[in-house]
């Protein structure tokens, strides 16, 4: 590696880190938390015995999973203004990613809730719990254990998917790399640095996942 490449990498580390800390990471964190809340609501709607409620949830999941995330982003940022709703880049990105996580994670949460044996609901009822209490105290803690691996997948995908926000002018990691690469034509080097940053974040998340799984497995016979 020649001197100028080393210098370029060194000078790009700061701006790309800024893209991570101010763009990718908060975008991921906010969208994931909001997306999980939405997903829980959608999962419970989907499990509802009232058919219009479950039909709405089913339709939502179908649309989110059946259309590209990039198209969803463009509809929100470039499409909605023609209907009179103009949303800034950042909130547009948060909205798109939240809706996307909400769709995918709802199916994970629904499956995890179903995986808790029927007898747990019944036992909770016999000690007097109503539906929300049963859900909060008995069902969701057990569903959480089952859903950590697939939800970790969703989170790790989201970290990388936030790079799509570069297309709607959000200054996150990848956009920073593009901005630095443009004038210098050092595409390979700068995109490799960006890739390394994404990978590093995902490694940390994978580590956190296994710690969390160990914690949640403590009440299960090995």
């Amino acid at each position: 590696m020649d001197q100028s490449t080393v210098e370029l990498i060194r000078s790009s580390l700061g701006p790309l880190l800024e893209g991570m800390v101010k763009g990718t990471i908060p975008l991921t964190a906010i969208s994931f938390v909001l997306g999980l809340l939405l997903a829980l609501v959608v999962a419970l709607m989907r499990l509802s015995p009232i058919w219009p409620v479950s039909a709405i949830a089913r339709f939502y999941v179908s649309v989110i999973r059946g259309t590209p995330l990039l198209v969803q982003l463009f509809i929100i940022f470039y499409g909605l203004p023609s209907l009179g709703a103009t949303i800034d880049p950042w909130p547009s990105a948060v909205l798109a990613f939240t809706l996307n996580v909400g769709g995918y994670a709802s199916e994970i949460i629904r499956a995890a809730i179903i995986s808790v044996p029927r007898g747990q609901w019944e036992a909770a009822q016999t000690v007097g719990m109503n539906y929300p209490t049963t859900l909060r105290r008995i069902i969701l803690p057990q569903a959480a254990r089952v859903s950590v691996p697939p939800l970790s997948n969703t989170l790790i995908s989201l970290v990388k998917d936030t790079s799509l926000a570069s297309t709607i002018l959000v200054t996150e990691t990848f956009r920073k790399a593009q901005e630095l690469a443009g004038p210098t034509f050092e595409f390979f080097t700068l995109y490799m640095v960006a890739a390394a940053y994404y990978w590093a974040v995902c490694l940390v998340l994978s580590f956190a996942q296994s710690r969390l799984e160990t914690r949640l497995d403590r009440y299960v016979a090995s």
């Binding site: 044996p117 747990q120 019944e122 036992a123 803690p141 254990r145």
Partner: peptide, 17 residues
């Protein structure tokens, strides 16, 4: 329901508690 306590065939204890 509050009038009775129930013991199940497959205990149905809360495994996470």
């Amino acid at each position: 329901r509050a009038q009775s306590g129930m013991v199940f065939q497959s205990h149905n204890l809360f495994p996470h508690l």
